[in-house]
Nucleic acid binder design. Structure first.
Length: 577
RNA sequence: GAAUCUGUAGCUCAGCUGGUAGAGCAUAACACUUUUAAUGUUGGGGUCCCGGGUUCGAGUCCCGGCAGGUUCACCA
């Protein structure tokens, strides 16, 4: 049972009043819409004749009543439009109920209405709909945060009473989307990113596929999984951490290009860059290598920037990032030399450990050469790479699915694109030598035995697929969330996920309607009893009967519940019996 | 996991060295037929996140918890 605020109670009373007037607050039939707010704003001035008989629906976002005329802000999916209501138009006869009562008193900010009318321009120059008919389509029982916006002389928008509490915004994204238009826009951009990619990959003739999310073995990345159980098969299943191994099986099967936009799940820490479920696009193309893939990534991301911003330049925080091709390319050794002045290429593990210590890295004996390189890079290079940059040729130890470098010993043909100090994609010339692949898996198993909880498992069926022969293949994984953060200038992954993962809201342990009824409290009095602070039956039972009767009658009056009858003293005494 | 900040009206936030809880918006009533953060007047509205403690007295101080933000760690 919810404890309702004054404003919520009032709106419920309005619901009854509407029904008493014969108005259904939640009508079943459709409302024909023939125009959008954006359409009117954009095209009215040029084609006035087309806006003489319009029908539009949306949410009331603001009301300015001036006696027998009123302005009301209507918001639909495309934006806002001002509407003008005049009593004498809506109520040509003596009966002014429709305007005075229904419109002025029973409609609220947040309600969804449909209107018919014609467009005109007010004296102050605002394009406005003169309303000839309106219909309530859905009554809102909760008030919205009222965000007010003003455009100053410089054309800058000033926002008053912004709805910006992050917890509420994420938990109640529907409210966030209603009152913060820039949030709606962010998610439109996110969808646009995916659409541009999909069109780009489809144009090249690659096949969009779906592969299992529930996997008997998790693989394709180094991460801890979520574990679940299938009852009928009585077996453990894991939510995928990547789909790499399945897509490669499809390349073995003879498709020469496959891709999937995949939700992946990793049971690890959360931060402004990490959500337990996130989206990646993975792409595998036969007969290509990582050099070819770098060109593709540049081309695709440049296209996305242009599609979203009309330019290759994107403002992200303090920086302007330019995605214009070609991007800078460094080998990992080259990047380390460039940023630290240290040439690690020829060092063995011992020399490198010394070098790392000198660069302020805490090392220990478990760290091999690959790990040391990765630490140095992470500490001294990655954060400094603001403009999009490819880092190529990683140590073999960290890349068990990548092909050995064609000329450099100890390295693999792998690259990441770094942008704004963070990885946005990861790609290899894929390892297709089944014997080498088995060896690499075995090394991972060894790491797992030594306690690395993220070491990869050996996937025997995947190896069998490789043994059938996989063509040389270039593979790519690109994080959609991270890319969306950059492309929408968002500081947190939570701002590009509609419903980021949160701990559940603490439960209120109030008694239920049934609990109250069980001790004899009439349903319409429950609100009153709760308002008095008796939120559990236990507390209620402790009350003094006379005082409780007095309090209930007083509170009923205070809450202006005219339709609710006061309880008799005997009735109240019976609750406590 | 650690550090740190935050939690007060439907929303955004004040609240000093502890003394009966405040503003703006929203809401209610009245006025107002082209306003736009509409305006004017008058009201109502609070489990100060939860639980302990100190105190004559706690929104405020102390301890513990819950939720959230940020940074770090982890996570390629």
């Amino acid at each position: 049972m919810q404890l309702l605020s004054e404003q919520e109670l009032l709106r419920r009373q309005k619901l009854d009043e509407l029904r008493n007037l014969g108005i259904e607050p939640y009508p079943a039939e459709l409302f024909e819409v023939n125009v959008s707010a954006e359409d009117i704003q954009k095209n009215y001035e040029r084609r006035k004749i087309d806006y003489k008989d319009i029908s539009i629906a949306g949410r009331i976002m603001g009301v300015r009543v001036m006696g027998s005329a009123a302005f009301l802000e209507l918001q639909d999916a495309t934006g806002r439009i001002q509407t003008y209501f005049r009593r004498d138009d809506l109520c040509p006869t003596e009966d002014k109920t429709l305007y005075n009562t229904v419109f002025k008193r029973l409609l609220d900010i947040g309600d969804i209405i449909g209107i018919k009318g014609y467009v005109f321009t007010t004296q102050t120059g605002e394009i406005t709909i003169h309303v000839t008919e309106f219909k309530l389509l859905s009554k809102a029982l909760r008030g919205l945060p009222i965000v007010k916006r003003e455009i100053d002389e410089q054309g800058n928008e000033k926002v008053y009473d912004a709805f910006e509490n992050p917890e509420l915004r994420y938990r109640r994204r529907y409210v966030d989307l209603i009152v913060n238009p820039e949030v709606r826009e962010t998610f439109r951009k996110r969808t646009r990113i995916v659409k541009v990619m999909r069109d780009f990959l489809d144009d090249k003739g690659y096949l969009e596929v779906e592969t299992p999310i529930l996997q008997p073995l998790y693989g394709g990345a180094a991460a801890r999984p979520f574990k679940t159980h299938h009852n009928t098969l009585d077996m453990t299943l894991y939510l995928r951490i990547a789909n790499e191994l399945y897509l490669k099986r499809l390349i073995v099967g003879g498709y020469d290009g496959v891709y999937e936009f995949a939700k992946d799940f990793r049971n690890e820490g959360m931060s402004r860059f990490h959500n337990p479920e996130f989206t990646q696009v993975e792409l595998y193309v036969a007969y290509k290598d990582y050099n070819w893939m770098m060109d593709l990534v540049e081309e695709m991301v440049e296209k996305i920037a242009i599609a979203l911003h009309g330019s290759t330049q994107v403002k992200v925080g303090e920086n302007v990032i330019d995605f214009k091709r070609p991007w800078k390319r460094f080998t990992m050794y080259g990047a380390i030399q460039h940023f630290t002045g240290v040439d690690v290429a020829k060092m063995d593990e011992a020399e490198m450990r010394v070098a790392a210590e000198k660069l302020g890295i805490r090392t220990d004996d478990s760290m091999g050469r690959g790990k040391l390189i990765d630490e140095i890079f992470g500490e001294h290079c990655e954060k400094k790479l603001i403009q999009p940059t490819f880092i190529m040729d990683y140590p073999v130890e960290m890349s068990p699915l990548a092909k050995k470098h064609r000329s450099e010993k100890g390295l693999v043909e792998r690259f990441e694109a770094i942008c704004n100090g963070k990885e946005i994609c990861n790609a290899y010339s894929e390892l297709n030598d089944p014997i080498d692949q088995r060896k690499r898996f075995e090394e991972q198993l060894e790491l797992g035995k030594r306690g690395d909880s993220e070491a990869m498992l050996l996937d025997e069926d995947f190896l069998r697929a490789l043994e059938h022969g996989m063509p040389p293949t270039a593979g790519l994984g690109m994080g959609i969330d991270r890319l969306a953060m950059i492309m929408t200038n968002s500081n947190s992954i939570q701002d590009v996920l509609f419903f980021p993962q949160m701990k559940p809201e603490p439960k209120t342990e109030n008694a239920t309607t049934e609990d109250y009824k069980a001790v004899g409290v009439r349903e319409d009095l429950i609100q009153v009893v709760m308002k008095l602070g008796y939120l559990t039956i236990e507390e209620l039972k402790k009350a003094n009967a006379n005082k409780l009767h007095n309090d209930v009658c007083g509170m009923r009056k205070k809450m202006k519940l005219e339709n609710v009858k006061n309880p008799t003293p005997e009735e109240v005494a019976a609750w406590l019996a």
